Simulated assay, not measured.
Amino acid sequence: MTQVIAVANHKGGCGKTTTVINLAAEFARSGLNVLVVDMDPQANASLHLGKKHPSEVPITCAELLLSEVEKLPAAIYEDNHIPGVGLIYGSLQLGKAEDELKDDTPRPSEELRQKLAPLMGLYDVILIDCPPSLKLLTSNALAASTHVIIPIESGSQYGMYGMTDLLRHVNRIRRINPQLELLGALLVKHDERQTVCRLIEAAAREQIGKLLPIRIPTSTRVNQAAMAQTSLHSLDRSAKVTREFRALAQLLAQQLQLRATSQLEEDVEINGEES
């Protein structure tokens, strides 16, 4: 069974794209067949991962949502900057597509699920990068997913802003997608020494009730990897932020019963001994 993980939070700058890119890279490095679906009009995941500019791509998520499912093969790009990670591009046209879905389709929240249905069983894991909103694009991502991760910027006093609205939205989507499961909140830019980070962690545990045990630290390596259009592992495999994403990938692979290779497990064990 293909596991489909939406990475969602309607707050911008909380690490959604960074999480998608580096989880995808770690999953692919472990031998899993991985696809990234970029549902964000800003298309940052596509700019990081893809070898084309989104404006040069004839069929992005926008066109796919509004077309027949037969166009799906043409929307998938396998030759990207991170080996083993496929991509369906995002684009600015997703904003327009959102309006057209609302006006022209009978079940506007379920178009992505319908379009991705032929891929079930072909990929081990599909990661969906959601836009910073709770509108129709995010609804489509959640309705198409088996699981959701909520990244939270731990180093900001606004990290938990609007979290009640997000959780309410997830529960509404469960009416059409009962299998949707919350994997947990992922604390990003976390520093246990800072009071604000400890307060955000306590608030997340109280409001969300489920925290992933991995904490992603602040690191200049994140921006450096984005500029180089590569993964954190390729940039600096020994960095703490790289080790944490590696540990997160192993945790999720075990939890979701994805087939893991000894390479991923060995890396985590080695780095655990180093730390």
Rank of each mutant, 00 (worst) to 15 (best):
L256G: 07
N44W: 01
Q255V: 07
K115H: 06
C61E: 13
E100K: 14
E111M: 11
A203P: 02
D103M: 12
H81K: 11
E273K: 15
P131K: 04
E56Q: 15
A249G: 14
R113G: 13
Y77D: 09
I150W: 03
L264K: 07
G86P: 02
Y123H: 05
C61G: 03
V241H: 06
A144M: 02
A202R: 11
M160G: 06
L248F: 14
K96T: 06
A249R: 04
L256K: 05
E274L: 09
T146D: 08
L183I: 11
K51M: 12
V85E: 05
E111H: 00
A247V: 08
V57D: 13
S139H: 02
L211V: 08
H147A: 04
T195R: 14
E70V: 08
A45D: 11
L127F: 15
L232T: 07
A203Q: 15
L47Y: 10
L49I: 03
P73R: 06
M227V: 09
Y89V: 03
I208P: 09
L122R: 05
L64E: 13
D267A: 14
G13H: 01
N223S: 15
A144I: 02
Q157S: 13
G15L: 07
A144T: 00
A117H: 09
A24Q: 00
S55L: 09
R221V: 00
A8I: 01
L182Q: 11
K240R: 15
T18P: 04
G31M: 05
L211K: 10
S231A: 05
M120Y: 12
L35K: 01
A239K: 01
D165F: 13
E181A: 11
G84F: 03
Y158P: 02
P118W: 10
V268D: 07
L180W: 02
V188A: 10
S234Q: 13
A225S: 12
A6L: 07
R259D: 08
Y158E: 02
T261Q: 14
P217S: 11
Q179S: 14
T146P: 02
R29T: 10
R29S: 06
S109Q: 10
M120Q: 10
I149R: 08
A143G: 05
V4E: 04
M163T: 15
A117N: 08
V196D: 02
A249P: 10
P132L: 01
F27S: 04
H53V: 10
Q179V: 09
N223Y: 00
Q194Y: 08
A8D: 01
T195L: 14
E100T: 09
G90I: 08
H147K: 04
I152H: 04
V170T: 12
K135Q: 14
L72M: 05
V20A: 09
Q255P: 03
M120C: 07
I128K: 04
Q229R: 13
K11W: 08
T230H: 06
I149D: 05
D267K: 04
E201Y: 05
R107D: 12
